[in-house]
Amino acid sequence: MWGFFIALSCAVIATGNVVVALGAVGLAALLVYLRREEGPWGSSFKWSLVAGLYLMVIRLITGILIGVPRPGTTLFTVPRIELPSWLPGIRIGGTVTWERLSSSLSEGLIIASVIALFGAANSVTSPRKLLRTLPTSLYQVGVALTIATTVLPQLVSSISRIRSAQFLRNGKKVRISSIALPLLEESLSRAIHLAQSMESRGYGSSRLRSRYRPIPFKKIDSIFLGAGTTLALLAVFS
């Protein structure tokens, strides 16, 4: 599934066509609707759509304010700010033409749709599941990533715990440097504990690894992967 979505985003970037992008997002939406997974990652398509929309708006605003002038139909004029002469080629404000607007709009749309496709991939298959389907040679990378994703929330809660404790000590604003030492100590001891736990459970003592509940590569996966690759190739060479 991930392969399909990656190929699809390649296609979108390669063609740079708004219609293709919209079509791809529509297809992704359909797939997410059909094959969504339960769990925290399931709603990532929705959030990626929102994030994509934000980016599009930002791209549009910067497109209006900053940019290289393009000749064409004038829509409206924003007051222009004079910049020192050592910044040639960039201008802030000025005439906004229809061409400039539409080009920034379509660029924003393409960025947004790539993000949406990424979110859709997450929705359909959680990243953890993806890690489990990786070949065993990539397993170590997978373990590192899994640990990182579990440790991060713990780190955040440690920071807030230490911060509030120090705030209560003297009621003054807590500096980052004073959090750093207790946090470092805790993280180090946590890392040592984790390493000890992994080592005492046999991690790294066998060259071969097996997989608990392996996820087989199904026929439908090959179909999607094949379709995606074809689309991407078509887009690149057309």
């Binding site: 992994m198 459970r201 690894r209 097996s210 509940r213």
Partner: peptide, 16 residues
């Protein structure tokens, strides 16, 4: 729970 057995290359059925 399965982590230790995966490291030692147990067969999936044994692990289950």
């Amino acid at each position: 729970i399965a982590f230790g057995m995966e490291s030692l290359n147990f067969h999936p059925e044994v692990m289950r």
